[in-house]
């Protein structure tokens, strides 16, 4: 078994897509890890109602925490100059406005840019939809940061979704522990591979058609 990237490295690679001045929202899972490695000047939004918030506190810094400064995932954040607060109506107007770059986790992504972020399990009676439908639909650019395969080894990058879609035709870029792939009009283009992996090896782990870019290269962080 070849080594794959850690979740932290996937997050670091995803964070490189964000430039100073960009507004972004980081979803649950691997995207949350991007928060600690985004460049200065990237403005992070949390859908619970804050734009431009500061770094998160560690659990042992409880005495410094402000109980009114809590993000969507119930983490306590610091003040940052330029930060603003708002209610959920303003927050979702922001999310749907096409002004935010959104990084989401995913269960499956298709070569057409369809994404499934949640599933209805055998005994589950409800979909875990949350803000993902709005975030995927409204993003200026939708980046998916996830593992390439399930724990059982099943490819998560597929021709067609086999589980219910969160949004269709919205994904721009897929970053996994094996590769970086771009959704284009011609199909899914393999642009980067994890260190030590060849395009052929990545293709073998993928259920979608992959077009290998002429300048395919190794991922950098």
């Amino acid at each position: 078994m070849k080594d794959r990237l850690t979740e932290e490295l996937v997050a670091m690679r995803a964070a490189k897509e964000l430039k100073p001045g960009d507004y972004c929202n980081l979803g649950f899972g691997i995207p949350e890890l991007c928060a600690s490695c985004v460049a200065d000047g990237v403005v992070v939004q949390s859908e619970v109602g804050v734009l431009g918030y500061g770094p998160l506190y560690d659990d042992d810094e409880v005495d410094q925490m402000n109980p009114d400064y809590i993000d969507a995932g119930v983490h306590f954040f610091r003040y940052l100059p330029g930060m603003s607060f708002f209610d959920l109506q303003v927050s979702f107007a922001m999310i749907r406005s096409g002004r935010l770059i959104s990084i989401l986790g995913g269960l499956q992504v298709s070569e057409k840019g369809d994404i499934a972020v949640h599933n209805k399990g055998e005994e589950k009676i409800s979909y875990r939809i949350g803000g993902s439908v709005d975030l995927a639909w409204g993003a200026k650019r939708l980046i998916v940061a996830m593992l390439h395969n399930t724990k059982a080894g099943v490819p998560k990058v597929v021709r067609d979704l086999t589980i219910p879609a969160t949004a269709r035709g919205c994904v721009d870029l897929i970053i996994t522990d094996l590769a970086v792939m771009e959704v284009t009009g011609k199909g899914l283009v393999l642009k980067e591979v994890a260190p030590g992996w060849t395009p052929e090896e990545v293709i073998a782990e993928t259920d979608a058609g992959l077009i290998v870019a002429a300048d395919v290269r190794e991922m950098e962080f």
Binding site: E47, L88, Q89, F92, I95, R96, E123, K124, I125, S126, Y127, I129, G130, G131, S132, V133, D134
Partner: peptide
């Protein structure tokens, strides 16, 4: 809760956060 939803004595409806608003 799961048992009651399957029996039909409890309805469970999923929206998105945006649609909720």
């Amino acid at each position: 809760i799961i048992q009651r939803v399957h029996e039909g004595s409890l309805k469970f409806e999923s929206l998105s956060h945006g649609i909720f608003m």
